[in-house]
Amino acid sequence: MALRATRSLRPFLAALCAASTAIAVPAWAQGKVYVSSEKDNRLYVFNTTGDRLAAIDVCKRPRDMSFNADGSQIYVICGDSNAMGVVDVAGGKLVGTVPLGESPEMFDLSPDGKTAYVSVEDDSVLGAYDIVAKKPLFEVKTGGEPEGVLVTPDGKTAYVTSEVANVVHVIDLATKKVSKNIKVGKRPRRFVMSPDGSELWVTNELDSTVSVVDTKTHTEKQKIKFAVKGMRDADITPVGMAISPDGNSMWVGLGRANHVAEVDVATKTVKNQILVGKRAWGLGFTPDGKTLFVANGLSDDMTLIDTASGKSVKTVPAGRVPHTILVSK
C-alpha cells in the first residue's frame, strides 16, 4: 500500500525483507483511494481512475490517516474531536474512537501497530496512546506547534517537527526524552525517510525548501530550494511529500504555489514541476508508482498525475478542504 508521506517509510523498507512480512490488504480495500475532508467530516473513497465510490462519515475535522497492520481498519486523526477515529474498511463506517489531546495533528504507528504516536498541537507534546485500550501512555514535551511525526522501523526513535522552534526533535522512545534538536528551515512540517534509512527529508513551509538530514549524525546536510516561475518565495509553501515506490523520486506539494515538484533523490535536483489545484498538500501513490494523487485543500479537489509523462490527467471534486490521501494496493 502507498502510505502517507509524512510518516515513516516502513512500507518501502519492508520491501527489502521477506515477502511474508509485507502488510496484506483485504480484497475489499484493494485499488481504492481515501481522502480525508476536514470540513465535511468525511472520508471520500475513489477508485484509482478518480471515480468517487463512497463517503464515510467520521469524527470532526479528519486529517492524517493510516491503515492498521492488516488493512482492515483506517485510523484517522480528527482535530476538532480530539480523537483518533477507527474506520471499518469492509463496512465503510466509523466503529470507534481513541481519545487524544487538544488539537491533534499528525501521527505514526509503532512497528507492532499497537501504539499511536501523535503530535498534539495545543499541548505542544508528542503523545503516545494505546490503541486497543484507548488510553494515553506518556507524553514528551516538544517545541511549539508540533506537526510531523515519524517513527523509525526499529521503534526506538521518533522524529517530530516543531513549527515554532524550527527544529526536528529526536525523541528516544525508551527514555521518553528528546535526545537532540536538529535545526532546519522555517516552519518544518512533514517527513519522508529515504529507502535505505540514511536520509530524513523535511519540508520547510515558510522558506520554500526541503531539508535533507543525515540520520547517522542528526545534522542537516543539504537544503533544496524551490522556485516557480511567476511566484514569490512567500507563495511557495512545501508541506506534503511522497516518495515514488522505486525510491528514485521525491514528490513535494508546494502549497500555495499550486504545483507539485519532482526531485531526483540521488542528485537532489528538481526534475519537473506540475500545475495542480490550489494549496497542494497531501500526496499518495498507486503501488506501481504510475499515478500520483494530490489533495488540493483550497480548491476542494484532487489531481491525478501521470508520473511517466509528468502531466496532470484529471482533477476531481474531493470534498471541502481535502487533507490526506491514503492509497491501498
Rank of each mutant, 00 (worst) to 15 (best):
D207H: 09
A18H: 09
S20R: 12
G79R: 14
G253E: 04
N68H: 03
M106W: 11
G50E: 00
R61K: 14
D214N: 15
R4N: 13
N68E: 10
G253K: 13
K32Q: 03
T237R: 15
H259S: 04
N181P: 04
A234L: 12
R63L: 15
K268R: 15
A257W: 06
I77F: 04
G253F: 06
V87R: 07
D300M: 08
I74E: 09
L254E: 01
S198Y: 08
V160W: 06
A27M: 06
S249Y: 08
V184Y: 07
T307S: 06
L9N: 15
W201K: 12
V151W: 05
P104T: 10
S81H: 01
P99Q: 07
R10L: 14
V120R: 03
D154L: 07
V294P: 08
L126D: 08
G85I: 01
E205S: 14
G289C: 02
G277S: 12
L109W: 09
K134W: 03
K223V: 13
V76G: 03
D246Y: 05
K216V: 12
P317Q: 02
V125R: 09
M106P: 00
A90Y: 04
D207C: 10
G148R: 05
I56W: 07
I77S: 10
A261L: 05
T161Y: 06
E205V: 14
V170F: 08
L275I: 15
V125D: 02
D214I: 10
G247S: 02
Y34P: 01
T315Y: 01
D80C: 02
W28P: 03
S194E: 04
F107H: 11
I274Q: 08
G127R: 01
A29F: 01
D306F: 05
L275K: 15
L304N: 01
K221L: 09
M84G: 08
D80F: 02
F285P: 00
E220W: 03
G101T: 05
A234G: 10
R61W: 09
K271F: 02
I236F: 00
P26Y: 06
V95D: 05
S208M: 02
L150Q: 10
A14K: 07
L100T: 12
Q273S: 11
Y44K: 11
W28A: 13
R52H: 00
E38V: 12
A116M: 05
V184N: 07
V86S: 10
G197A: 07
T269N: 13
V140Y: 05
